[in-house]
């Protein structure tokens, strides 16, 4: 149950000597390493780098993602089942891979994104690129249900039909259709029907972030939702409340699917 890029089999204790010795004061003996065999959980970030993101917005986005990753990494260290791998698609008029190879979340240092001057907000091609990455054969068959996070400040500016084409390419892949899809709108005016359509679940609202702090909070909430996705028996009610602030309301579609109580 290993994911991509994991080293194997035994780690040299000398080679990892600079890692923080978290739990034991005594010298570590030479032991096999590598943690627990876990199933990969692919997390794809779709980040808006259109011209409108310039200035504070892109800074806030970069800060917020960098701030979110340690939360996900900390959660992942506590898992016996899921190992999180991050990829990032940046998009403006065209999409491109900002992080193409799945990176273990614990080892990922965030490389800041830059906006594309005069770049449009074409989401359809970004969805199509993600669809390719989630195609059968592109992710491990034992991979857990993936997660996708769309962060944008504006309305989609796709030419007619392209948003739908990209979205249907994504939905055409079982992993794309099954993915937990979340969206964060930067700026209160940014909510759009397009984001709701990307999420595809009326129980999961678009998260709106007005400030950089807000974005960080929303990303933490999103990562929490992602993290809870792979926990059989996870407390869906608590996740829903924390995510969406709806006391007592349990959102059946995203959380109840794969659970045994």
């Amino acid at each position: 149950m290993t994911g991509p890029g994991t080293s194997w089999p035994a780690e040299d204790s000398e080679a990892t000597a600079e890692r923080p010795a978290m739990l034991q004061a005594a010298p570590y003996p030479r032991m096999p390493g590598g943690g627990i065999s876990r199933r990969p959980l692919h997390f794809i970030i779709l980040a808006d780098c259109s011209g409108g993101m310039k200035g504070e917005k892109i800074q806030a986005l970069n800060f917020a993602i960098a701030d979110m990753l340690p939360h996900l990494a900390a959660w992942e260290r506590d898992q016996e089942q899921a190992q999180v791998f991050i990829r990032t698609i940046a998009f403006a008029t065209e999409p491109w891979w900002h992080i193409a190879e799945p990176q273990p979340v614990a080892q990922l240092g965030w490389k800041p994104l830059q906006p594309v001057p005069k770049g449009l907000t074409n989401m359809g091609p970004a969805f199509a690129l993600a669809a390719q990455a989630l195609a059968s054969g592109q992710i491990e068959r034992r991979a857990l249900r993936p997660a996708m996070l769309l962060i944008t400040d504006g309305l989609a500016t796709d030419p007619p039909g392209e948003f739908e084409a990209g979205l249907s390419a994504l939905m055409d892949q079982p992993a794309g259709k099954a993915a937990l899809r979340l969206a964060i709108a930067i700026g209160r005016d940014a909510r759009s029907a397009a984001l709701d359509r990307f999420i595809g679940d009326r129980g999961v609202p678009v998260l709106v972030a007005d400030s950089s702090e807000d974005i960080a909070d929303r990303l933490v909430a999103a990562s929490l939702a992602v993290s809870r996705m792979s926990e059989a028996g996870a407390d869906r009610g608590a996740v829903a409340r924390r995510l969406f602030g709806a006391p007592g309301e349990v959102l059946p579609n995203i959380f109840d699917q794969d659970t045994i109580v």
């Binding site: 032991m31 506590d78 898992q79």
Partner: peptide
């Protein structure tokens, strides 16, 4: 168990 350096 997920630490790089395993306990003895």
């Amino acid at each position: 168990l997920n630490q790089d350096r395993q306990p003895s």
